[in-house]
Design a protein around this nucleic acid. Structure first.
Lengths: 260, 260
DNA sequence: CGAGCGTTTGAGATAGCTCAAGCCGGGTGG
DNA sequence: CCACCCGGCTTGAGCTATCTCAAACGCTCG
């Protein structure tokens, strides 16, 4: 779009609480066909079956970068207290595995079936040196990921469990792979603990929050990995509302911040 | 360093809980002298007095990018519930104000005296198009910021108030501008609410946590913006420890997770 | 010297954690 | 085909860290 200057950087599409409907920022889409081809040239294609598959672990020497074609990749890190933090889920078009001083700083697993492109880091960075547009595309993508991370910072540190879940569900709707055929249905192809570790909440709390939302009529659990959003309006109100309602007064604004 | 491929990307130096002693990732340091000069050519220099100064607000049209020479910049965002989240503090060598679709997504204020370089976005991105190394440096810096954000995600969602404060203090030691002349002294040039909004904790809790740490002999409050670290060892243990100690058992591991 | 802001301390309320038990569904073996 | 078992999910009960509101304190600047 932006005619002058960088024709690539300003493509990013994430705002804090105002999500957009379309939401693609896949690396490929940022590249002209010629570069897509060059990229494919140095790629090897990987296919993963159902079930979890480790791709790499934090601390390992990093030889490859990955690009997601289909599926969901879990990027996580282990705290010294043995607790896992899920930093992000990477979907179609996302890139991951960029080294820091030659090593991976995070771990990555495919959860469920996935198709990936894998690039040797040497060829990948060589290609970037030859092709400035390649570098720009990566820059745009990382800037996008950075903004996503900033949104997560805000969500994690300000929102209560309900709000976090609501935010997550609203985020998911951006990704076509999660929308079920029937309108309003969202497929959670994640275990509760994956989701809990992502939202900074225990699986038990997650279950309770789901139950409460169901009681409120906001959603319905069809199977434990399929939920039907029944009231998008309220879901959004929940995500936007205050963490805690005013203790002794009307609960008019959000019917959720004070659940009892 | 890295001879083959990208001579710039792998320079990043942040690991999750294992901080390094030196910690510079300033944009300038990533540039050869020639480019530093070109950059300075398109810069205008800004000087701010003591006290808070707004640089820009989220939502505004973005015309400038900023580079910090000295001082501390607070990058923040307002949630729909009127609550401020401090996303980051930017120190010397940091860059901020990169637009998303032509707009700022965050707000920025100088807290305390500061010197900045300001670039018109058009010239800045033009320079990046001409000079691939410029683009690489920006890429490296944003990748660095991204990793910082990931660390913050882990800290915010796993750590309790004590741990967050401990982590913050340990982080600060990386930045020379915060080390007081006397060894072990750290100058908090931030208000308690700034720090609280950064750590996702109320100012009251922050005060209590400081008091507890003082009682434990980990640190001492000299003035309310100057603390002396008295036991670095324990401070690190606190930051690494579990969020909550095992309810009924020895408190041998960390003397802090269960404070009473 | 007083006003006013930022910090600290106190008291009570509460959301989310931990531990523990029940539940449900899918896969396996008889 | 059924019974069983196992892992993941849910529900329950109690506990605690942190929040909220409110008051005391103490600098700093008129």
């Amino acid at each position: 779009m932006s005619s002058a200057g960088l024709p690539d950087l300003p493509q990013l599409k994430a705002r804090l609480f105002d999500r957009k409907e379309e939401f693609t920022d896949s690396l490929q889409d940022l590249l002209p066909p010629r570069l897509q081809a060059r990229l494919k040239n140095i790629a090897s294609e990987l296919e993963f079956p159902r079930g979890e598959c480790d791709l790499f672990c934090e601390g390992e020497d990093a030889h490859f970068v990955y690009l997601v074609e289909t599926g969901t990749i879990r990027i996580s890190r282990l705290s010294p207290a043995e607790r896992r933090q899920v930093l992000a889920f990477v979907f179609s078009g996302g890139i991951f595995g960029i080294p820091d001083e030659g090593r991976y700083v995070n771990s990555a697993q495919a959860i469920g079936p996935a198709r990936l492109y894998r690039f040797a880091w040497a060829s990948f960075s060589g290609l970037m040196q030859e092709e400035p547009d390649m570098k720009s595309a990566l820059l745009a993508r990382i800037a996008f990921d950075f903004r996503q991370a900033q949104r997560r910072i805000a969500v994690l540190s300000q929102q209560n469990a309900c709000q976090k879940l609501a935010s997550f569900l609203l985020d998911l709707r951006q990704y076509p792979e999660f929308r079920d055929k029937r309108k309003g249905h969202v497929r959670l192809s994640l275990s509760r603990s994956d989701l809990g570790d992502y939202l900074g909440v225990t699986p038990e709390t997650l279950a309770r929050v789901l139950a409460r939302m169901e009681a409120l009529g906001v959603l319905r659990r069809k199977e434990c990995h399929l939920v039907q959003i029944r009231d998008m309006e309220i879901l959004q109100q929940i995500a936007r509302g205050p963490r805690r309602a005013l203790p002794q007064s009307e609960s008019s604004r959000t019917p959720f911040a004070r659940p009892n």
